[in-house]
Computed example of a mutant assay.
Amino acid sequence: MTSAATRAPDRALAALEEIGSPGRAPAWVRVQPAAGGRVTGFGHAVHRTADPRSVLLRETAPELGGPLAELAGAVEERAVETLAELEPGRALHADVEHCAGVVVAQCGLDPSLFTPTFATSRVIGWTAHVLEQARDPRTTRPSARCVGPPAPAPLG
């Protein structure tokens, strides 16, 4: 995590490294807003409930195993509890970055490749958005409905 241009998954991993153990999570969470920062890996500009991507990654991380996945799960639990105390009535959930960095790191990818990997995985969505925008030039949010040919039947 030495790059000056770190991205959210890198920052989320750095936060886990800084926290170090689940017991330190509440104090770390309390310090961030007091210091004018944000609690890296929690809250999302669009998803006001649990981000569906983070739910999938939260399930995937323990399947891959390892101390980093265990730490991320325990820190998430304690951070959500602490955030609920700090901001009652505002549910802040782990965002996609909290576990994304963990999962990608568990796959053996160097943090310097996180951003190119995420960009590559988003190309299909960006392409779909461009095609939708070309059909209707009004500014829109891309739909999640597949308009292409149906997926081939599974083999076997």
Rank of each mutant, 00 (worst) to 15 (best):
T139L: 14
A153C: 02
H98D: 07
G65M: 10
A151M: 06
P149C: 03
V102H: 04
H44M: 10
P88Y: 06
V55K: 09
V123I: 12
A27M: 00
V104P: 02
R138N: 13
V39N: 10
L57D: 13
E87N: 07
A74D: 14
T2Q: 12
D10K: 01
L64A: 13
H93C: 11
G66P: 09
L83Q: 00
L71C: 09
T2C: 05
T140A: 15
R135A: 14
E63C: 08
C107L: 15
V75P: 03
P142Q: 05
A4C: 10
A14C: 01
A69N: 10
C99I: 01
V31D: 14
A5C: 11
G66T: 08
I19T: 01
V147F: 00
H47P: 06
A94F: 07
V103P: 00
C99M: 14
T2G: 13
A79T: 11
M1W: 09
D110M: 06
T140E: 12
R53N: 13
A153S: 06
A128S: 14
L113F: 11
P67T: 06
V130W: 03
P150L: 08
A144D: 06
L131F: 08
G66N: 11
L56C: 05
V46N: 00
H44A: 12
S3R: 12
R53T: 13
